[in-house]
Every structure is written in structure tokens, then in C-alpha cells.
């Protein structure tokens, strides 16, 4: 049995804890959080050991891995200590607040030879996997343009918030929402190398942006747009989509369906001229335990499997998480320049 612990029991941490609890190859032996409310619930209702100090937990417990789901500004010291202890680490997104810290962690993970993963769960959604596969198979021919979008109703009123309303702690729509879209673009199409025309707009928040708009230029020269807004009440929950336009047509992909329009058929893929729609019902990755979406379990299964098989992940390595952090820095620099 692979033994692990969770640091940070907010929305994601609790969800990871439940998924780990149901994982047949892993045992969650301890949890750590600053809130006595949450720790008391674990003390009362579960067998798991509770800690309020992650250092003490990492010192005392015989762990194989830790899962870190704290506010972003804590990622660096916590991941660093875990790596120094030789533990495998799953870290929530975004990976780090500064590129220099992120680079140090990537180097350290590499030196220690431990398995590492960042929580960009969209890569475990079957439709986005299918989009990547279709682009690699060049069904659209030469690419012309892309747009990466995400909308949702996180901040829909003016009020006092948590760490998510402080940019220096990794709050704001860019770190929280746009990072998902940037990461999808970087892994599915190509890595962004330049940002331009960036607009960071405040709608309700006092000190962070609620929307991110701008252009990204990728390493292969392709340009496209980023359009992300977490103050959009027309969406019931976060809705992320990628649209790619090529000389042979267009693909629109979100978490529930992938819509393909081709000017000319692509026989090797069995795709006709005109529209083809594929649904998540056919593309979902099967999981043994479901909470909020197959992707949340599938990413944990992948991490545990990497530890078991002793292989580094193809999805969401620290290095890939760092790449997203670098693009976030490019976007901020572009905005400040204006």
C-alpha cells in the first residue's frame, strides 16, 4: 500500500481526500490543515491522523507521497520540504507564484528522482484528450487560429474575499481560472512564447482581475486569443473550451462534447465532410470512484499509478506546471508594459 498525506483541506483538498480514501492502492494516513473546524471533523468521524503543522507531519509520518492543496503561496515551502524528504508530490495548480521558485522545485524533483504532478485536471477529460489526438493526426491541416476560453460564476458581487482576492498570494482570475486554459493550450496546441494586447479587467474584485483577455503567440508561430472571465453568471459552473481553426476546418471542444467541422473528409479518422459531434459519454475515462467528474479521480489514479510503475507522468509534470507559470508571468509583464 502506498502511504500518503494531504496538506490543505479546502474544496480541492477535501475532494482529493475522498478520492484518495477510495483509491485501492493508496492509503491516506494523515491530513494537515490550519482550520480546527475541518480537523475536528476528521478527528470525530475518521481514523486519519490530523496535524496543524505540515513539518511535524512530514517528520513523524512514514509517507511515500504528499498531496498539496493549500493556497498557492504555500506551495513553494511545502513542496520543497517534501522533495527534500524524498517524497513523491502532487501539487494543486497553479504550481508556483514565481518562476524562479518553480524552477528550483523542478530541479530538486529531478535530482531526487521523485514522481511529481500538478492538478490540471482537464487533461483527464476525454474530450480534451481527443482534441489533442485529432490535432496530432492533423485533421485540420495547417492551423490558422485558436481561442481558449473559460467562464464561470466565482465572483459575482462586490464583497470581501479570501486569499483568492489577493494577487500576491496567487488569487485572481489569471492564476485561478486562466491558468487552466493556458495549460490546455500549451499541452494541446503548442507552448506560448509571447503575450500581447493583454487586458486584465476588474469587475467586482477590489484588488485582483476578474477577467483576462489577450493574444498569445505560440512557439510554432500560431497566434490566438485567451478570453477568461470568472464573474460571468450566465454559466452555472466553470466552463472551459478550446476552439482551433485550420485550413481544413474547425474543432470546438469543451468538457462535454467535441464538435468537428471538416471542409474535406479525413478517412483515416472516419470523419466526414461537415459536422461530426462526439460526446463525453463515449470518451470519458472510466474510474472506480466518482466525485464531481471522472477527471478528478483519473488524475489521482495516474499519480498513484506512476508511483507504482516507477515512471514519470506524461500529464502535468512539475515542468509542465512551471511552463504555465512562465506564461502567466509573460501575461503580467505584457499588461504592466502598457
Amino acid at each position: 500500500m502506498i502511504k500518503g498525506a494531504i496538506v490543505g483541506l479546502g474544496k480541492m483538498g477535501l475532494s482529493h481526500a475522498a478520492i484518495l480514501g477510495a483509491q485501492p492502492d493508496a492509503e491516506m494516513v494523515a491530513v494537515c490543515d490550519a482550520s480546527s473546524l475541518v480537523l475536528n471533523a476528521f478527528k470525530k468521524y475518521s481514523q486519519v491522523k490530523t496535524y496543524s503543522d505540515y513539518k511535524e507531519m512530514m517528520n513523524k509520518e512514514p509517507l511515500d507521497f504528499v498531496l498539496i492543496a493549500t493556497p498557492t503561496r504555500f506551495h513553494y515551502p511545502m513542496v520543497k520540504l517534501a522533495l527534500e524528504r524524498g517524497l513523491h508530490v502532487f501539487c494543486e495548480k497553479p504550481f508556483s507564484l514565481t518562476v524562479s521558485e518553480g524552477e528550483e522545485l523542478v530541479r530538486l524533483a529531478d535530482e531526487k528522482g521523485v514522481f511529481n504532478q500538478v492538478g490540471y485536471h482537464n487533461h483527464f477529460i476525454g474530450t480534451f484528450r481527443e482534441l489533442k489526438r485529432l490535432l496530432q493526426s492533423r485533421v485540420l491541416g495547417d492551423l490558422v487560429h485558436f481561442s481558449g476560453e473559460a467562464y464561470g460564476p466565482v465572483v459575482v458581487k462586490e464583497k470581501v474575499g479570501t486569499w483568492r482576492s489577493k494577487s500576491e498570494e496567487g488569487g485572481g482570475c489569471l492564476y485561478d481560472y486562466a491558468s487552466h486554459v493556458i495549460n490546455l493550450i500549451q499541452e494541446i496546441i503548442a507552448r506560448p512564447v509571447k503575450a500581447s494586447g493583454t487586458q486584465l479587467k476588474r469587475i467586482f474584485s477590489k484588488s485582483v482581475e476578474d477577467a483576462v483577455y489577450g493574444t498569445l503567440i505560440l512557439e510554432n508561430g500560431l497566434s490566438g486569443i485567451l478570453s477568461v472571465n470568472w464573474s460571468d453568471e450566465t454559466y452555472r459552473k466553470m466552463s472551459t473550451s478550446i476552439t482551433v481553426q485550420g485550413k481544413n476546418g474547425k474543432i470546438i471542444c469543451d468538457a462535454t462534447e467535441i464538435k468537428i467541422y471538416l471542409n474535406e473528409p479525413v478517412e483515416k479518422e472516419g470523419l466526414d465532410k461537415g459536422w461530426t459531434i462526439k460526446y463525453i459519454t463515449d470518451l470519458a475515462i472510466p474510474v472506480d470512484f466518482y466525485l464531481r467528474g471522472e477527471e478528478y479521480s483519473a488524475q489521482i489514479d495516474n499519480f498513484i499509478d506512476c508511483i507504482k510503475q516507477k515512471k514519470q507522468t506524461d500529464y502535468n509534470s512539475f515542468e509542465q506546471g512551471l511552463c504555465t507559470d512562465k506564461v502567466i508571468e509573460l501575461i503580467i509583464a505584457d499588461y504592466k508594459k502598457q
Binding site: L14, S15, G21, Y45, F289, L291
Partner: peptide, 15 residues
Amino acid sequence: NVLVDLILGLKMFEV
């Protein structure tokens, strides 16, 4: 389900 399955995964069955 989101709450049932959370409690289930956390093994807090007394809840």
C-alpha cells in the same frame, strides 16, 4: 451525490 460521495470517500460513514 456530491456530498454523499464526499462522505463515502472520506469514510465518515457515521455522518
